[in-house]
């Protein structure tokens, strides 16, 4: 067992006006994740520490936090990889509700805005045909766990909360690229604007932090290409 120093950003809306930092010491071994450490703190030292978590296997997307300023899933980040004091804070660019819990409402609103479901007229009882190659076109983008790390990494979302952001645009691309979908035209109105794909300046940090290696930056910039095509096609339509 090794002793680790954690410096956690605390914020209690009923007591504090601004967040404060609190230091803790936890012991852990080579398997201890940041989430394990936070839970052991909560159980043994400070039951008032608030955080979200559930699956502890990097699939439910609940436990995103900033670790030394970088967005990480708490359950997939290990103390063994850090030296010195480890800073833990709530996800950046979201409003803090309490301690490590942020308000995810804007994130969910952006997801809903891009019509994230299949749009088609299929009405029969048989499954669609979709070859492995067609599946491969969008499969990667369908693996988003909605953890919000990419929003905490994206300075454009930080500067403009109206920006749809990496996960939502990736999800739009996921459906646009699906051979079973005919809804691209109705999704483009969301993607075309400054709050859509063009709000991205390809900082690329979303792809750096994505715990599922989705490459949302690629998706967003592919959406720009689609948006440009859409623009040109519409020019000729008039």
């Amino acid at each position: 067992m090794t002793e680790y120093q954690l410096r956690i950003q605390r914020y209690d809306p009923e007591q504090d006006d601004t967040p404060r930092l609190q230091r803790y010491t936890v012991s852990g071994d080579h398997t201890t994740s940041v989430l394990d450490a936070l839970l052991s703190l909560q159980q043994q030292q400070d039951p008032t520490l608030a955080l979200r978590w559930s699956c502890r296997m990097a699939i439910c997307g609940s436990c995103g936090v900033m670790v030394n300023g970088i967005p990480k899933l708490g359950c997939k980040t290990f103390l063994r990889d850090y030296n010195g004091v480890i800073d833990i804070a709530p996800l950046a660019h979201f409003a803090v509700e309490k301690d490590l819990i942020v308000d995810m409402t804007p994130f969910l609103a952006h997801l809903s805005a891009i019509q994230p479901y299949l749009i088609n007229d299929k009405d029969d009882k048989a499954p669609h045909k979709q070859t492995p190659a067609q599946l491969a076109k969008y499969q990667q983008f369908s693996n988003c766990i909605n953890c919000g790390l990419c929003y905490a990494a994206c300075p454009q979302f930080g500067l403009n909360p109206e920006f749809l952001g990496p996960a939502a645009i990736t999800l739009a691309q996921r459906y646009n690229l699906d051979s079973r979908d005919n809804g691209k035209a109705s999704r483009m109105s969301q993607l075309n604007g400054n709050n859509g794909a063009w709000g991205c300046t390809f900082v690329g940090s979303c792809s750096e932090v994505c715990p599922k290696q989705l490459d949302p930056a690629a998706a967003v910039n592919q959406a720009k290409v689609e948006s440009a095509k859409d623009f040109i096609i519409n020019l000729f339509k008039i």
Binding site: P13, E14, T18, P19, H93, V96, E97, G158
Partner: peptide, 10 residues
Amino acid sequence: NARKPYHSRM
């Protein structure tokens, strides 16, 4: 209600 979300500025 008791909510008072803290918005940090960049």
